[in-house]
Amino acid sequence: MTLSQPRIGLFATCLVDLFRPTVGFAAVKLLEDAGCVVEVPAQTCCGQPAYNSGDRATAQALARQVIAAFEGFDFVVAPSGSCGGMIRQHYPPLFEDDPDWRARATRLSVKTFELTSFLTDVLKVERVAARYAGTATYHDACSGLRELGVKTQPRRLLATVEGLELRELEESEVCCGFGGTFCVKYPELSNRMVSDKTARILATGADVVLAGDLGCLLNIAGKLQRNGAAIKVRHVAEVLAGLTEAPAIGESEGSG
C-alpha cells in the first residue's frame, strides 16, 4: 500500500447509485483531488435494510458480497454515515459464530470510512477547491454522528468553500424521521419528525440544506417540496466538490 496514492474502493451506496449519481462523482473528485486512485467495484447494497428488519441471513449474505468485492482495496469510502456505519460497526458482530468471515469483516471494517471523515481524519485534507455563493445549513445524520463520530469533519471542510456561509441548524442532531423502512412503516410519525426538521431548516433562512446521507436528504427534500419551500437540498459532497451545476435533489432542469 502506498499511502501517497491509496487505492480506494468507492461504496457508492444503493441510494446514490439509483437516485443521485452526482454524489458518486463528487466523492470520486474529492478523493482524486486528494491523491487517491478510485475504483467502483460492482455493488448493490450494504445489507442494512435486512439487518434492521431482523433478517440476519440476508444481511450476512450481502455483507459477504461487500467484503469479497472490497477487501482488496486499501480503503473503502462511502458518501454515507449510515452505510459506512453498517460496514464499520455492524459487519463484525454479524459473524459472531463464523471466525473466518468475522476476521474478514473486521479487517474490512477498520479500513472503511465515511467520506468527509476519511478526507479529514485519514488524508488530513484541510481545504477543498470549491466555490458556492450562498448560505448553507447542515443536518447531522444520525448514524454518521453517533456510530462514526462525524460532526466537525464536514463543517471544517465546508468552512473552506469560497463564498459559503454556514448557519447552524437548531437541534441539528435530532433525527429527521427517515430511519430506512421506518418512514414507510410509520409514515405519520416519520412525517411529524420531518415536519419538525424542515421547520427548523426553514427557520435558519439558509438557501441550501446539506447532509451526508442521501436517505435523510430524500426525506427532507420531499417534505420541503411538498410544502412548496424554495430552499435547495444537496449532499454535502456536491458542494465540497463544486458539483452544483446539476439541479438540486427533487428539482428538474427548469425548476432550479
Binding site: D17, N191, A221, R226
Partner: peptide, 14 residues
C-alpha cells in the same frame, strides 16, 4: 401521502 419523492437524476451511477 406526506412528502414528494425525489426521482433519479439520470442513469444510475454504476
Amino acid at each position: 401521502a406526506w412528502r414528494d419523492l425525489p426521482t433519479p437524476q439520470g442513469r444510475t451511477f454504476q
